[in-house]
């Protein structure tokens, strides 16, 4: 990958609590987000994906390590730079039902970020901008703008959330499981929309998911997390087609695949092996091996 990343995490660690009971939610995490590219962060619940997202959002401060925004450490930012960061990095949440205020219209939800973050948009242009945002996410402005969240379906609400993020004119979007609460038939529509936005607006997209098949659908790069570490990362096709880390292999073998029947004894996962891989992968793995150009794996 060439060019300076928009946002980069450099050996970032986050520990909750102290002493023997401390939880190492993120251990020496490094990744970078580039304009017009998507990085998928995949792993099971508790692996540290959301902790990484929250650090990227500056909701958590890292225990150790640096977060770089266009090459500059964000800890060193002054008030104006911090405000710029808040505008430039936007988030889309998992639950489209909980992330919109039930007491306000959709138009209100989209006006707020415009008033807050977009001094370049004149007061007289705000209504037109709201309409344009809704059109961008393929919703009919006349129909949707005056409505309240409860009048919309889950997929429509998630589109509103995307529009709300876009209203701030972001450079990076962090999407934490944006489709896991949606019906299967509307998931692809939302993912397609995210991909289009990423390309058209040259956004850096951090796509967090436990669904590795959608990761391949959306992202160019992938990072597989387990127990707070990124155990394998690189080009999405290379990692999924020729996984090198035992945990990635385990994860891939468990993805529902209609070509594989449970009755087939050769595909049976042995609980002892699963336990073993989990225990091994949870240990600190300091060695980084380049299996292939743009494909890396950690080892003990």
């Amino acid at each position: 990958m060439t060019g300076q990343p928009i946002l980069a995490l450099d050996r970032v660690t986050k520990t909750f609590g102290h002493g023997p009971g401390a939880v190492h939610a993120a251990r020496s995490i490094s990744f970078s987000l580039h304009a017009g590219r998507a990085l998928a962060l995949v792993g099971e619940s508790g692996s540290g994906k959301t902790t990484c997202a929250r650090m990227a959002m500056r909701e958590y401060l890292p225990t150790d390590g640096k977060i770089l925004f266009k090459g500059k450490a964000v800890e060193a930012a002054n008030a104006a730079e911090a405000a710029h960061y808040r505008r430039a990095v936007q988030m889309i949440f998992q639950d489209p039902f909980a992330s919109l205020n039930p007491a306000h219209t959709i138009a209100y939800h989209l006006k707020r970020p415009l008033l807050l973050h977009r001094p370049d948009v004149k007061r007289s242009e705000i209504d037109a901008t709201v309409r344009a945002l809704l059109q961008q996410v393929k919703l009919d402005p006349d129909l949707v703008a005056p409505k309240y969240p409860h009048e919309l379906s889950g997929g429509q609400r998630q589109r509103v959330n995307i529009a709300r993020a876009l209203a701030a004119k972001p450079e990076v979007i962090v999407a934490d499981e944006p489709t896991s609460m949606l019906d299967v038939s509307v998931r692809l529509g939302v993912l397609n929309l995210l991909s289009e936005m990423k390309q058209e607006m040259k956004l850096g997209l951090l796509y967090i998911t436990h669904d590795i098949a959608t990761a391949r659908y959306v992202a160019e790069d992938i990072a597989v997390m387990y127990a707070g570490q990124i155990v394998e990362w690189g080009n999405v096709g290379k990692v999924i087609d020729s996984p090198a880390h035992p945990y990635t292999k385990l994860l891939l073998s468990a993805v529902p695949d209609p070509d594989v029947r449970f009755d087939d004894p050769s595909v049976r996962l042995r609980p002892e092996d699963v336990e073993d891989i989990r225990r091994q992968s949870a240990m600190t793995q300091d060695r980084i091996v380049e299996v292939d150009p743009d494909h890396f794996v950690r080892a003990a």
Partner: peptide, 14 residues
Amino acid sequence: LDVVVQREILQRIN
């Protein structure tokens, strides 16, 4: 549940 856990449980039920 996560896919690995899901697989372990359904395999056992099968």
